[in-house]
Design a protein around this nucleic acid. Structure first.
Length: 467
RNA sequence: GUCUCCUUCGUCUAGGGGUCUAGGACACCGCCCUUUCACGGCGGCAACACGGGUUCAAAUCCCGUAGGAGACGCCA
């Protein structure tokens, strides 16, 4: 039978980057094995769930190229079914109604805590046969013996049933708890393999008891380790960015995110750059490591620069355009496209790419402090010579022609080329880092170059007066 | 506190008894290329948590210890 897996996020917060990895692993498992990848929105917490978060889940998955089969299941629409299963379990004697008040339970819990004992529901109502519809429904869990789960990632994990208590299946308001709803939905959706974060490992034992109480086939489990921040604690906002949406906004490409997330905690020999097709072909749960891994922003950046270099210029342009501060014309667009080869080897994110593309749009409006090193009388005088040289050649020149002329000038003036090039860079871009100045001139033309240099000279007589 | 899981360079990892004086990648440091910064090339630094076993032989198997994480809700 071909596997059916699911990704079941809850729209109570922004989509965590760790959840995205869970989604990716499920998706790869399905695609590798020719199975189905399903989606279920766990929105039973009506107070915290939002429409916006749900929308973003779909949006990010699409952005990453993680497509799903069948219509997504909205958990909140299945309330009646959840209730029905709980009632049936009561009828079968596998669960029971409990009328202990939350105050009573809180007091017992506090007492246990103060005595240093682990808290468990004590089963007060277990044999009472309560009929009150306002009561909760608890599972009559096993009191002795062990439950063993053969986890596809963690191996065999055994827990004594005595560790578990009669946990709640249905709340007093008639809504299901997470434990009940996941099991019922996974069963009804025909899920064969549950691949999820290992923070659910201990829940698994409770869920297995529900499966058994209902007489349903227990699916296979694979609990993948969580992602931590650089300090070893759970990855959160505190570390800069924890949401998938954040990474998109920071200028990371979808293929970077997929590749990075896949490689984090999973490996295929020494391979680092892994295409989508290779990932599908190679993916195997057995290669998932059992230890948690830390998120490394530097490695993510490195991968992103790789994928930026791999991208064709037109697609990069489409990423850059919306990031530019203002609307630009066709001429500027063409310039950026021509300059893209020079820009893309220097950018770690598409945000940086957009910033660097500014050279092709207009003269700088701001000059970095470090530029002052190249704003001396000597440099200004060199720039005047550059203007005279450029004035003698037409507007349309090649990179090589400009380079040749400037090299000759450097020789004539007896200075190193770098002195002239850096002064030109400052005048043209307002910064010390940019693509080749000669290439910039080829793209913007000598007329604009001369005009930028002249306006720079005229206001740089007193360095700093122009910023 | 109880239960469960984890532990190879700073980070991600390869490794499944001898081929390990432990390999790759990122980061870092040099050098080369070079108009800047990148890219690219070459080189360097750097790890089997600790203690006991088992074995002719252990990073690899077993048991402890320490450290880390997760779960213990009428949240998901």
């Amino acid at each position: 039978m071909s596997p059916r897996v699911r990704f079941a996020p809850s729209p109570t917060g922004v989509l965590h980057i760790g959840s995205v990895r869970t989604a990716l692993f499920n998706w790869l498992y399905a695609r590798h094995n020719g199975g189905k990848f399903l989606l279920r929105i766990e929105d039973t917490d009506k107070v915290r769930s939002t429409e916006q978060n749900t929308k973003l889940i779909f949006e990010i998955l699409e952005w990453l190229g993680i497509d799903w089969d069948e219509e997504p299941v909205i958990q909140s629409t299945r309330l009646v079914r959840h209730r029905e299963v709980a009632e049936a379990m009561v009828k079968d004697g596998r669960a029971y109604r409990c009328c202990c008040s939350q105050e009573e339970l809180a007091a017992k819990k506090e007492k246990a805590l103060s005595e240093g004992k682990p808290y468990k529901y004590d089963g007060t109502c277990r044999d009472k046969n309560i009929v009150d519809a306002q009561s909760v429904i608890r599972l009559k869990s096993k009191l002795d013996g062990n439950t063993t789960v053969i986890d596809l990632v963690q191996g065999a994990v055994t827990v004594e049933n005595a560790q578990l208590d009669d946990f709640v299946l249905l709340r007093s308001d008639g809504t299901p708890t997470y434990m009940l709803s996941v099991v019922v939905d996974d069963h009804d959706m025909g899920i064969t393999h549950i691949i999820r974060g290992d923070d659910h490992l201990t829940n698994t034992f409770k869920q297995v008891q529900i499966y058994e109480a209902c007489g349903w086939t227990v699916p296979s489990f694979a609990h993948i380790p969580l992602i931590y921040g650089p300090d070893g604690a759970k990855l959160s906002k505190r570390h800069g960015a924890a949401s998938a949406v954040d990474y998109r906004e920071l200028g990371y490409l979808p293929e970077t995110i997929s590749n990075y997330l896949l490689r984090l905690g999973w490996s295929h020999g020494d391979d680092e750059i892994i295409s989508r097709d290779e990932a599908i072909e190679w993916f195997d749960l057995r290669n998932i490591g059992r230890s948690p891994s830390r998120f490394d922003m530097k490695k993510l950046q490195n991968l992103n620069s790789h994928y930026i270099r791999q991208r064709d210029n037109a697609s990069l342009l489409s990423y850059v355009l919306p990031l530019l501060k203002k609307q630009i014309g066709e001429i500027e667009e063409k310039r950026i496209l021509r300059g893209m080869d020079g820009l893309k080897t220097r950018a770690k994110t598409v945000v940086e790419l957009a910033e660097a593309a500014a050279v092709y749009i207009a003269a700088p409006t701001h000059y970095d402090d470090a530029c002052s090193k190249y704003v001396t009388d000597v440099h200004i005088s060199l720039l005047r010579d550059v203007v005279s040289v450029l004035d003698q050649i037409g507007d349309s020149v090649t990179e090589e022609q400009v380079a040749q002329s400037i090299k000759e000038l450097a020789e004539k003036r007896g200075v190193k080329l770098i002195e002239i090039a850096q002064a030109m860079r400052v005048a043209l871009c307002g910064r010390l880092v940019s693509p080749s100045v000669f290439q910039i001139i080829e793209i913007i033309g000598t007329n604009e170059t001369v005009s930028r240099i002249n306006s720079f000279i005229s206001c740089s007589v007193y360095p700093g007066s122009c910023s």
